[in-house]
Design a protein around this nucleic acid. Sequence first.
RNA 1: GGAAGCUUAGCUCAGCUGGGAGAGCGUCUGCCCUACAAGCAGAGGGUCAUAGGUUCGAGCCCUAUAGCUUCCACCA
Length: 872
Amino acid sequence: MAKELAKNYAPERFEDRIYAAWMEKGCFHAEIDRSKKPYTIVIPPPNITGQLHMGHALDETLQDILIRWKRMSGYCTLWLPGTDHAAIATEAKIVAAMREEGLTKEGIGREAFMERAWAWKKTYGGRIVEQLKKLGSSCDWQRERFTLDEGCSRAVKDVFVRYYEKGLIYRGERIINWCPQCLTSLSDAEVNYEEQAGHFWHLRYQIKDSDEYIELATTRPETLLGDTAVAVHPEDKRYQHLIGATVILPIVHREIPVVADEYVEMDFGTGVVKITPAHDPNDFEVGRRHKLEIINVMTEDARITDDHPKYAGMDRYEARKAIVADLEAEGALVRIEEHTHNVGTCYRCGTTVEPRVSTQWFVKMQPLAGPAIEAVKQGKTKFVPERFDKIYYHWLENIRDWCISRQIWWGHQIPAFYCDDCGEMVVTREDTAVCPKCGKPMRQDPDTLDTWFSSALWPFSTLGFPDQTEELDYFYPTNTLVTGYDIIFFWVIRMMFSALENTGQVPFDTVLIHGLVRDAQGRKMSKSLGNGIDPLEVIRQYGADALRFMLATGNAPGNDMRYIDAKVKAARNFANKLWNASRFILMNLPDDFRFEGLPEQLAMEDKWLISRFNRLTKEVDDNLNAFELGVACTKLYDFIWDVFCDWYIELTKPRIQAGGESKATAQAVLVWAMQGILKLLHPFMPFITEEIWQVLTADGSMIMLQPYPVYDAKLNFAQEEADLEKIIAAVRAVRNTRTELNVPPSVKAKLYIETAEEALFAGAAPFFEKLASASSVEVGAKFDMPDAVGAVTDAARIFIPMEQLVDKEKELARLAKEQEKVQKDIDFLSRKLNNAGFLAKAPEALVQAEKEKLAKAQEKMDKIQQTIRSFS
RNA sequence: GGAAGCUUAGCUCAGCUGGGAGAGCGUCUGCCCUACAAGCAGAGGGUCAUAGGUUCGAGCCCUAUAGCUUCCACCA
């Protein structure tokens, strides 16, 4: 025990060193061990473009707590890490970097672009991984994967081909969400709707060969160029006579029909809708029903096409202005209303999405959604908290086909090949294809897959799928998936149906959902607001353990939390408390100390502590099993600070000063308890517990590989617990009384303790001297001390003779107040115990406990009354 | 339009299957007692949003109402 801990808790001095030691010893690596039960978590792969933010920090912390706890509990634990290629986000970054050099994608070509992209991945892709390590994440880095690596790519290709062969994937012309900035299609999940202030332009179209006009309202007048009909509700009396008529489209002066369609709401606007099948999803559907022409008026970057020379090249918003002006000039503009409406925006760049008709690949969702719903209904996968299953069902029940093709290069290229000669298409796992009809080499589809297509396979593609590997057999299905509620749609749902379809099993048994980490004012942390807190900065300042503990404490599953500096500080202070408690233990140990288990002869306070610790192990384990990590943190905090430091350590001081056999016992119990505490706390605060463990044990062992403490019925000491609680209550009563009378701790006084349990209190004399400023203690069955101050508990009357301080009036008033309080207790308890319903229906144990409480209150009342009488 | 969550001490939040309201920070009082002032000892502070209901018993369960937040849908 030669080594000492540094004087102050300074996490920066050991966190990196300890992480390196874990890595060097291979503590995180999981080898298949059939003698153990597996426990597997796959990391939600962070984007290679990303920097660690508070959301990751929370996510990783929760996973690491679970993994470390299970590892210590004897499971063969695998936490499989990796990163996501983040198709659109990464491509955008690379394109932007190229623009700085005056280069474009098209300019350098696909191959050169991919080379750059991989180089970029090499440079920046590891950044986030290094940041995860700072948090203490015990991932099996030997198994680190990347969604675009060879294995994952093979799984993607395999699944694509399989889906295609089963008819679950098809290619077709549809209206999809298009981002004019990213220049690619987006899935429904990738569009965010934002409320925007806009206008409602009321226009009038002339009926052909008539003086009559029909009035309609639109939020997007520029799409008028592509109008191919005007629609009214079939039952709308106002417009019955116009159904089938022809109207003249202003500006363009094209003739278009008036159609009847139930999609039109009679009460909204004028009950007339202009139909632009090429630029609105609803209009597209109307157009299909009425076989309307689709006239695309915009380029892929949302400018007007050359078909309309007057507006050609103008972007959507310029064209809108110009067209409104022309409408006005033509007398077609009736009026303009203010109007707020929801506008779809790209989840990556925020640009307003442009609905666009194009040929894309889709996954047919109906057949896949059913089994995914069923699996959760049958409880094969459970959400924690449960309420998120409603969101899950709702989304799956209303799901539309998933657009999976993207017009970008960074990603898994679609394994479909076309013959430019005869138009033949082949979908294959091979890298090249020859036309089966004309024997010519085929051209691969230039598009790539939605980045979520590959993440959807993550729980099994990372374990070797499509091969039936040992890993897949042993570690799959995985156990817990930890993620934020914001990506249930993107990811959780897609993993569910992909796993069920491809592996026949659910991908995980539990989905632990957490909320967002918001700023101190409750706002979402965002780049644009600049209110993000950098976890690495917090780690530099307070240590990773403090950040982890803060994130895990008081954070209930599924609920958002705020990042508040004071909370991290509190966690850091807690670490400091633990640090100093360890220092206290170490500085009192002899150099040749060797811990050899708990001694035979234990003092009352030792048994009290052991018993309480034993119960704590059960509670923490129960909480962890129920995913109540925050509750477990609170219990650990309270036990370590209040029970262990404020009481037990203080209670050992008299023995440590006295020396001898009783000192040796105290030392052993201190070491035993500290080791237990460290183990129990390790999943939450891995660094500090490891550092202290190594100094304390000095045997080269690692705490992260120790068994997690478990409840042991032999360590249950109810009698000693109850006895010591009496002493504690008496110490508190004395302290309380002294404080109320403003007696400083330096003024010592003799205590006369009147009690029926003389032996118990006599034995506790040193505690009163140490903890209650007693100069000495006398214990007896009866004292008569009218000139003293009295502290009363249910087990004892304690007199403190302090002539100069005794003010009879004040003293009586104080006792009267105390009496009132106890009387309230008695009233409450008697009322309860006189209630026939309570006696009849409440559990027996509770009734018994209430009776005991009443008896204690009555004991205390007697003693107060006696004291009042003797003082009067 | 549909759904979910939240409303508890001045602030930020816990409160597990219903059994006399908790923590951290802040406030007030007294303490450098050789582990820790990043600390110790004490104190004050709450009709648990409102109104009903179920129950022997409700912060917790049920119903309605109000306010805040979020998600989904997307009526041009």
